[in-house]
Computed example of a mutant assay.
Amino acid sequence: CVGCRYCVVACPFGIPKYQYDSPTGKIGKCELCRHRYQDGHYSACAEVCPTGATLYGRTSDLLAEAKRRLALKPGSLTTYPRGNLSGGPDQSYEAYVGNYKQHVYGETEYGGTQVLKLSAVDFEKVGMPYLSPKSSASTSETIQHTLYGGLLMPFAVLGAMTYVAKRNVSRAGEAPPEAPGGEGR
């Protein structure tokens, strides 16, 4: 982190926060308890969640679990994993399947997010904003590649500026052009 605060502007969820009250401000955001990794632990929220509503693991594993849950028949009995999907002790439990909306929030929104959510009610009702499938970073990249591809735009602008500058400067030894209307006083 160099303190540019692009992540604060880009995050549609408002998660990263910049500490403006500090002269050496830092970005504060969830790092999934990175400091616990060296002791063999993972994010504390997923480790202590009693229902498996918060899970930890690779995005591919989390997406597979979300799709498995969506494919289940509401009201049937199933086994739910808890904790770390990418390894660790089996903490799974049995419970009845809820009636989920048939959508994994975060799979395609904003080009795909690192957080995936399931819900039995509309995502807007639980505070999740509508996000287009294309991220603003992707849009910005497309615009920049179009403008600066092959350096055509910078050369065109530089050429136009050079033309205007040369047109407005008289050459050494030449008389300045006469004012319109003919003779002076």
Rank of each mutant, 00 (worst) to 15 (best):
A172T: 06
L32M: 11
G87I: 01
F155Y: 07
N99D: 12
Q102G: 04
L116Y: 03
G111R: 04
C49G: 01
G87C: 01
T24N: 14
Y37G: 05
I27T: 10
K166Q: 10
S119H: 05
G25M: 04
F123L: 03
Q91H: 14
A53K: 06
T146I: 09
T24L: 03
A179E: 12
I27Q: 03
G75Y: 08
V121F: 04
V104F: 03
F13N: 11
G28P: 00
G28V: 13
A10K: 08
I15R: 13
R34W: 10
S136G: 14
Q19Y: 09
F123N: 02
C4K: 04
A10S: 10
S132E: 14
R167M: 10
Q38G: 12
K67S: 01
G184K: 07
A46T: 10
K117T: 07
L118N: 01
D122I: 05
R36I: 05
Y20A: 13
M128G: 00
K134Q: 11
P23I: 05
P50M: 03
L55Y: 00
S22L: 14
R69C: 10
S76F: 05
P81F: 05
P23H: 03
R171Q: 10
A66Y: 00
M161W: 15
E183F: 05
L32E: 06
T78K: 02
T51S: 15
N84Y: 05
G40I: 02
K117E: 07
A71S: 15
D122W: 02
E183I: 04
L63M: 10
M153Q: 03
L32V: 09
Y37I: 08
L131K: 01
A120S: 13
I15L: 14
G173R: 02
